[in-house]
Amino acid sequence: MVKKFVREITYLPLILLAGIICFPVLFAASGVFMQQWELERNLAPVLAGAEGMAGWSVLPHAPTLRSLVELLLDSPQFFVMFWNSLKISLCILAGQTMFGVPSAWALARFRFPGRKAVLLLYIVLMLMPFQVLMLPQYLVLDRFRLLDTHAAVILPAVFSTFPVFIMYRFFCGIPESILEAARIDGAGHLQVFLWIGIPLGSAGIVSSGILGFLESWNLIEQPMTFLKTKSLWPLSLFLPEIGLEEAGLGFAAAFMMLVPALLLFLSGREYLEQGIAAAALKE
């Protein structure tokens, strides 16, 4: 009985922790349904330098969809950025799949000279903070005259090595015997890759896709560095610019940005977990 109770009581701190972790999300979500006056009353001490302390209630006093309606119907600029973000993210995903999957397959399934070095290189590059690669990328984008275009954000991200690393782990997990059987059946390298590698490694591809999407949906430094034209900006650059007078709009926009990420996260949670877990698997 005591053991059971101990087991039950462990839930409490877990739920508390879960609450703390979820708080910012709930906070942002409740802001969407507040009216402007309530937001101003709550946030004025923080954003406008007013006296007193900021307050917050997770449940709005006078819930309204006004901010959301205003955002969705009266703010075409929001949609410009929303689609910019989506365009960048999807392009990056497509590019990563196109170039990353074969690379990962090659690294996982073939033995050739320099493979280990390439792997190490990929891991090192994967761990490089963006700021280290910012200058080289800037130089090459400048050379190709790609600065201030979406391609400037998309192309370097397409050749990011992190997805390769994730998918490599998945492809490593495919039993060699299946591939051997296929080869004996007379399948070429390409057929083996297309008909066996991709279907069996699809979980890895999806999970790396989800991770990639979350990452690219959240890009800030790259567009900030490479994009000057405001109309090319993704949503992530627009949100920090919102002040108190548009707080309602800001919360709504933040919420709308959160929604696709959460939807994708929820629908691909299992793949995501697999993808994450794959990284932890022993080589």
Binding site: L72, L73, D74, S75, P76, F79, F82, W83
Partner: peptide, 10 residues
């Protein structure tokens, strides 16, 4: 849809 609507309104 909302994109189109908001542009029209704009």
């Amino acid at each position: 849809c909302f994109t189109i609507l908001s542009r029209a309104a704009d």
